[in-house]
Write a protein that binds this DNA or RNA. Structure first.
Lengths: 355, 355
DNA sequence: TTGAAAGCGCTAACAT
DNA sequence: ATGTTAGCGCTTTCAA
């Protein structure tokens, strides 16, 4: 456009980027022309020139249908987008299969092809190699969760500093103990994830603090079927039967409740059930699920904010270093991304211990 | 890279694009160099040059938390991604608020900034203005669903041609009638969506075919609360009380079942319930939800495939017109994207009519 | 078979 | 205050 509609190319550039050295009349003419032609700078050209793509990447190393069944991920994405959208950033999603190198390839492409300014990682794993990879690739990264070992990667998690991480689980155990429960079981997920292990440990610690030991810990998988199987085993032997069960997440807890009901146990009369995450499904079912709630949407927002901060610093070499305060310019660097610690939400799936 | 690691820039270009006019040795040298340097063409530069961004856009005109609560969308995305990923296409997501012009702005940006090669639309609406807008913008578009009025836009839906669209609902009604139900209610969603109206009509037609009339049709909203309220009204007057209820989607159906249970009605003993979509949540609950199943993942794949076809044609003006058959090149143009018609999946939430 | 060179739409020096 | 110009990393004629 530019030349055709008014003046010269650099004038246009200066106007759209709010650079000084433009007279009000010229400025206005450019704005008018842009308006009339419905023109706006080509993102590709800008990216080519300046290395800013205004897109953040996410790679999900799971199959499409597993992902579809797991709302956790989509809730997180909602949060991330909530922050990205106003800054006019896009989210570039890449769902790759379960094969380990598919994931690595995806990150490599993202980096080599310069498609995104940075990536957000989730599902922190034990022995995670992604941080190192991303560092090699020079791709700014933010982790949602806790690194498996001390690592300089930027990360966000509910409760911020680790001190508050266990608050929800402690409240859950206290709640059960006050209801008279003494035999409390925990159904964990696959322990190659950091958060899975952390939650289980936090649970054990909370129980320990009340002088109790877990009745059972069943390591299973993150699927509804696995939850059902775990519950079945838990309820099989009458003499060791728990009166309450905590699950590693809401989906498993809901599946567990159904299984209990199917086996003839009424919730919460015969068995109390507690989930983790506080997904919408928890209040859809009957009885409504008591759960440890963490603000996943907020967590997503925090991750995006942290990413903006990271990019702001990275771009600091040549960009606008000061506070021009004009807003509407994307990455702002204000307060630290704080996410409230997990809390217990008592609904209907917990009650006094049977007998 | 190129020059440094071997020969000349155009040689490299020819190699990576499988263009003729390269001797095997040269070719090999380029490949080796690229391998060693872990180099691959910059997506931005390619896009700038050739108008292909290898990204598809999607704009969701809903607030982040509404979206989070609705798995429908994420399942669809899984399907789309399943097709995009192997072709090395990315999905650029934009979640904008409910404000009407925010959505339009998002599409405009996508088009003006040339960030994507095309967009996939969902949630076909009555009086939808998006097709026209996209046409103006010159952005290739594929609709998941049926246009509200005859429109040249490319669209995909379960059952392909409209003839089979009602199969699931007919089966559902037949199933209920055979179980002895005569008073069958339908809880619809907001009728500004095409599919909402279509499903309700299909239901009425199916009922009509059996010589019955719907006991009640309650237009509500697509939320769990609304479903609960609707059900409450439905069960309020004993003399007109239905023995079976169909819901416009699974989430509402699950919420409805819980509400029934809370009101003292046992499902399916006192009330049969049928959902629509067949989302994972349906088999998580007790009793497991009988539902009209459509293959949402497949629908997503079909949309992506249709998009590739569209892009292939659009690019045909200057691109490779023939069948070079080398694969790995992205948009293939094979069979038509067929998605199986909706079918009834009978689980546990339906049973013989009470009394 | 290979290389040189002209842009794609922008931004940032450098003139004017 | 404004215009000119050299690339960013590629693809693609066109010459050699």
């Amino acid at each position: 456009m530019a030349a055709l509609a008014g003046v010269s190319v650099s004038a246009v550039s200066k106007v759209v980027n709010d650079r000084p050295g433009i007279s009000p009349p010229t400025r206005q003419r450019v704005l008018d022309a842009a308006e009339k032609l419905r023109w706006s700078p080509s993102a590709t050209a800008v990216a080519l020139r300046g290395a800013r793509t205004r897109a953040i990447g996410m790679v999900a190393g799971r199959s499409a249908d597993v992902l579809a069944a797991d709302p956790h991920f989509s809730v997180l994405i909602s949060g991330i987008e909530a922050e990205l959208a106003p800054a006019d950033y896009g989210l570039l999603l890449h769902i790759v299969g379960e094969e380990p190198d598919a994931e690595e390839r995806a990150y490599r492409r993202l980096a080599e092809e310069r498609r995104v300014d940075g990536v957000i990682l989730t599902e922190s794993r034990i022995g995670d190699t992604r941080f190192e990879l991303l560092r090699q690739l020079g791709l700014p990264a933010v982790l949602v969760g806790t690194p498996w070992q001390p690592d300089p990667i930027v990360s966000v998690r509910a409760g911020g500093d680790d001190l508050d991480q266990g608050a929800g689980l402690r409240a859950a155990v206290d709640h059960l103990v006050e209801l008279g429960h003494r035999r409390i079981a925990y159904v964990s997920g696959p322990e190659d994830r950091v958060h899975t292990v952390a939650r289980r440990r936090l649970f054990e610690a909370a129980l320990d603090a009340r002088g109790l030991r877990p009745t059972r810990i069943v390591i299973s998988e993150f699927t509804a079927d696995a939850a059902v199987r775990a519950l079945r085993r838990l309820l099989a032997e009458p003499e060791r039967r728990p009166t309450a069960v905590l699950f590693a997440n809401d989906t498993m807890a809901v599946a567990g409740m159904s299984a209990a009901r199917r086996l003839g146990f009424e919730v919460p009369r015969d068995l109390s059930v507690i989930g983790y995450d506080d997904l919408p499904v928890g209040s859809l079912v009957y009885p409504r699920l008591t759960t440890v709630s963490q603000d996943l949407v907020q967590l997503g927002r925090a991750a995006a904010t942290a990413m903006f901060r990271l990019l702001g610093e990275a771009a600091g070499t040549a960009g606008e270093p000061g506070a021009d305060g004009s807003g509407a310019d994307g990455p702002g660097a204000d307060g630290p991304p704080a996410v409230r610690p997990p809390t217990l939400v008592v609904r209907e799936s917990t009650g006094p211990a049977a007998g």
